[in-house]
Nucleic acid binder design. Structure first.
Lengths: 246, 246
DNA sequence: GGGGAGAGATGCCGC
DNA sequence: GCGGCATTTCTCCCC
């Protein structure tokens, strides 16, 4: 357990230097902003990033239990008996206060990282795959160039079938749900209205679909097409030894 | 910068004890599972929780850049020249590998926390508020008891207006968007079909609504009602000094 | 375990 | 800044 004076000095120095700060503490947390919350005493990990994002993590789960977005101001307040971190984000009108009962450890370090993640297997990759392999939808399907699709909004893929009927395709990389069906319906109705045509096919392309969603889809005269999302980095999957090849 | 042998010993001990582990490192990350990704060398904060959730955070932003869900197995592999953390989640078929170039610091500590957060100002609170104050929707609106709403699905509030016409209300705590409108449409159509009645009013209750969404709402004959979400813990907002009163 | 829906969602891109 | 939308969404509740 760290001494208050020592903790305050280290913390203030690290805040001034915009270092990555991480410490463990037994604490309670109050939040007020978009909503309001109170978290009673317990052990948590607290992170303050160089961009002044603050995260509070409990010992389990992926998501932070409390947080403040980028750009919050952190003030250390203490009396003989208590130690508080008061955080405020003025433009967002958000407030978060941490009562620190004891600090288990404290670390800070400057961090540089300009790298961005390379991600494959997204919905956009799925749309690209269908453009390049239109037979995944059906024989004779002819996708229209990507540039044109922007005129009609955020439609994933559209083109014409072998009878030259317009086809709108909504891709989902996971199991298609009710909202995917209503999204497809919105696009089909939008195109029907804007182009003044009556016959437009709507196709939901996804690896699978929930039973209720399939029923709703068919009730509205749309179709489901089973398509798996692509994984462009499969090389990694097949040869774990070649990690250095990237 | 920590010595490899020292780091490995500390890490293995902390993993065995199910402690909260956090360390800073210059590293690269590969992921394969629901999607695939590669993150080139950079400084990051790496967290391994007692429940074996793994999080990798860059120096900015709220969300982890890479992660593994609860229950992953962590193996330390090293040669003369390299140090790897290989993580695997067998039931989810997910894999994550970290190449550690250097470790800036390492901390671990046992953590206990059984507390749950108390949150106010959610969509459910908003529905409760409308039940208790039906005049927020319109004079003469009579909400039906909450128990009955479950028979008809996830409808936030429903009741009858002064002319005894059925009213379905969808609440949104933020600005209502297109999906909120299609969600309301689904509920109204479901109720019309299941009860065999033709006249059902649909009301979207939210603090505001986007222009496109308002147009779509009105095109389908539904209504918008401006309602602010409640904040039950306002006491805290008004008197920051009474933090200990909870 | 899957389905359905909210979230203090976050993050990205476009206007 | 808002709008629209995907997300390795996460989390919760209910069946």
């Amino acid at each position: 357990m760290l001494d208050h004076v020592f903790f305050i000095a280290k913390m203030q120095d690290a805040l001034n230097k915009n270092e990555m700060i991480v410490f463990g503490a037994h604490c309670a947390v109050w939040y007020s902003g978009r909503a309001e919350s109170y978290l009673p005493d317990g052990d948590r990990l607290i992170i303050i990033k160089p961009d002044k994002t603050l995260l509070i993590h409990q010992p389990s789960g992926s998501a932070p239990i409390n947080y403040m977005k980028e750009g919050c101001k952190v003030h250390i307040n203490h009396s003989d008996t208590s130690l508080f971190l008061n955080c405020i984000n003025i433009p967002l009108k958000e407030y978060l206060d941490i009562k620190l009962n004891s600090v288990h450890f404290f670390e800070s370090h400057p961090m540089e990282d300009i790298q961005k993640i390379q991600l494959a297997g997204t919905e956009e990759d799925m749309a690209d795959m269908i453009y390049k392999n239109p037979e995944l939808i059906e024989p004779g399907f002819k996708p229209v160039s990507k540039e044109e699709q922007t005129k009609y909004g955020f439609i994933d893929v559209f083109g014409y079938d072998k009878n030259n009927v317009l086809v709108i395709i909504e891709c989902k990389r996971y199991s298609a749900d009710l909202s995917a069906v209503t999204q497809l319906r919105r696009y089909v109705e939008k195109i029907k209205a804007s182009k003044g045509i009556d016959k437009v096919r709507g196709v939901l392309a996804a690896p699978k679909i929930t039973p209720n969603s399939l029923k709703m889809l068919q009730d509205w005269g749309f179709e489901f097409c089973s398509v798996k999302p692509p994984k462009y980095l499969e090389r990694y999957d097949k040869d774990q030894k070649s990690l250095g090849d990237f």
